[in-house]
Design a protein around this nucleic acid. Structure first.
Lengths: 349, 349
DNA sequence: GCTCGCAATGCAAGGGCTTACATAAGGGTT
DNA sequence: AACCCTTATGTAAGCCCTTGCATTGCGAGC
């Protein structure tokens, strides 16, 4: 009956349980260092008082926030949403909270967000892709905040990453396309500047062409925003060239869906008149008609593993190890054999 | 040349600028209380040292974290992802960070997450929908953490909300359906337990039936998870009844897409054989074939406004005011006039 | 010229927790 | 029985800011 109406502190719990604050703290943070009987006494007191540790004090004393920051291009793209969902689930499981910010594919935004997270005491940060200014990595190192890169994987990068090989995956897909006799290929890519994933996907197509002994120079590449409409516009541009491609490989499913919709609008049949492929295998791929041939990426697994690895790095102060996840080419109706369209193109202009 | 290799603190800045720590603090937090000349001196010192305020200490002293928590059912549904994206953007704009957790439509999870966020010192929390145990609201009140509810709106609820009228919106859609002559309606709903939004949508359909003088009892309602496959299964169940519905209204677009895909798989034509509608107007609605008739919801606006309102509540300690946003029925190809399937009566009686 | 008020700044008290180190108690060993 | 080691717990020193109150300095009003 002393202080009614005030938030209980460690001290209160300690007094109630007849132990020191250190013991209470240990009960909470490393229970095995306290004998069972004491522990139960403390627990009882905690319940009685409805005690919750004060976050600020804890952060200050422990120099940890149990918070992980993730900076992704946008939550609106299903692939990030899905991976992030998995990431958060694992984080939560291990007692961490997730802070999220989005960069909108802008490096300056990303940098600002990183600094903001560090200032907010994030124990670690998850970043997408390797491409960014070196000063940011230095900053993170100087501030002693571990970072892990996801949605891509590269063996020889300086920083640990968990993801897949964008180049090889795209190359595998392109090989499938080429094996169907297509020779006139085009790529609708996302903006490659500052986006190694987009760049690698384009490179993957080039790899395949080289492997088949085809002329890489003839590959048409259009870069545009990752939006449905943009994909459609790019497709239309490609079609209106003198030598319209018989197969269009898109940098992701969103662009591919845009291309398919536009193709249909132009009166083209997919894949009879033109084959179209995507990348990511999001839900839409199985909804659009024809269903989209694409590269399947294990987004959830990536999110889960990224969380585990990052926590390792935070807790064990390990440097972090990279992990490559497998992707698979999923052949669906949007890809068909090449027919030389001759001059039967109905659309055009 | 004293302590090399250590993170600079307020003290260091103060010494360097030749002022007290209080002045430095004021420079950062309320610059107008410091004279310009001093301010610039301090700024200079901050830059020189690369000083960043220590988060923990700051939280502890100021009793604020500038962090807002949002607990949503799942990031994987585009409607939450999109709203959340907007929410985060506005938050960031105003100097707040976003913490995210997902409940997977489970109340117990949600409660745990709420407590976790409060313990982590969230300045406010964003919740989805009204349905939850009263004890949670009490807890939030007792802990003095303001909360705002989104994705729904109800005038007379005890708690402030920003969203739309699920019931009226669905009712408006149902009226459109009924006006096309459909009499045999069915609903594929999300699980309504603990989900007022789902419940209200079903109620909206019932409202419309009553308004038209039709028998509400005859409305078939199936509840299932918000997943494509589940929507398909539910559709199939409905079709296999003795009196298959001529129009199926789905609780959201995901279910509707599932229903459409399954309908096609079963050899049915949409909307000739059966009309199908959704709710939310996500991207998929315009991709699935036929395009989906649905209710358009201003997700981004909702996210932005929710952020503004919640910050108001946090900073001004205001109770928070509710705001209803407008939705609109979007008629697309998946909805057509009723034909009595067997005894082909012309529509429009 | 003196007093008063106000603006700018300084002083120093917390704020609640973690953890290195100190102490105490118990048990095994010789 | 003396000794040492281990285990359980206590003591108290931070951790680094914010902010109420105190102090100083200056111009205006009388």
């Amino acid at each position: 009956m002393t202080d009614i109406r005030t938030v209980p502190t460690l001290d209160d719990v300690a007094k109630m349980a007849g132990v020191s604050t250190a013991t209470v703290s240990r009960c909470i943070n490393s229970p095995d260092r306290v004998v069972a009987e004491t522990r139960s006494r403390v627990k009882h007191a905690i319940d009685q008082l409805g005690y919750t540790p004060n976050f600020g004090a804890r952060v200050m004393a422990a120099r940890r926030t149990f918070t992980i920051g993730a900076i992704i291009p946008t939550m609106e793209n299903a692939i990030f949403a899905r991976g992030l969902q998995a990431f958060q689930e694992t984080l939560h499981h291990k007692g961490y909270n997730l802070m999220v910010a989005s960069s909108n594919y802008r490096q300056t935004n990303e940098e600002e967000q990183i600094r903001s997270f560090v200032a907010r005491g994030a124990d670690g940060v998850l970043l997408i892709g390797h491409d960014r200014d070196d000063s940011i990595y230095q900053y993170l190192e100087q501030q002693d905040v571990p970072s892990l890169i996801a949605w891509t994987f590269s063996q020889n990068a300086k920083h640990p990453s968990i993801g897949f090989d964008n180049k090889a995956s795209m190359s595998a897909l392109a090989m499938e396309v080429l094996s169907l006799g297509h020779t006139e290929l085009a790529v609708i890519s996302g903006i490659t500047k500052g986006n190694d994933r987009a760049r690698q996907r384009v490179d993957g197509v080039k790899d395949a062409l080289m492997l088949k002994g085809l002329d890489v120079e003839r590959l048409k590449v259009i870069e545009t925003k990752y939006e449905i409409e943009a994909g459609g516009d790019a497709f239309q541009t490609l079609r209106s060239s003198d030598t319209p491609p018989s197969a269009v490989l898109c940098g992701n499913d969103v662009l591919a869906v845009g291309a398919i919709l536009r193709a249909k609008k132009l009166g083209l049949k997919v894949p009879e008149d033109v084959s179209i492929t995507g990348f990511d295998d999001i839900q839409m791929a199985k909804i659009v008609e024809p269903n989209l041939t694409t590269v399947h990426v294990p987004h959830r697994e990536m999110g889960n593993r990224a969380a585990e690895e990052l926590i390792q790095m935070v807790e064990k102060k390990s440097f972090g190890s990279s992990k490559k996840l497998d992707t698979s080419v999923v052949i669906r109706a949007s890809l068909g054999p090449a027919h030389k369209p001759k001059l039967t193109v109905a659309a055009g202009d």
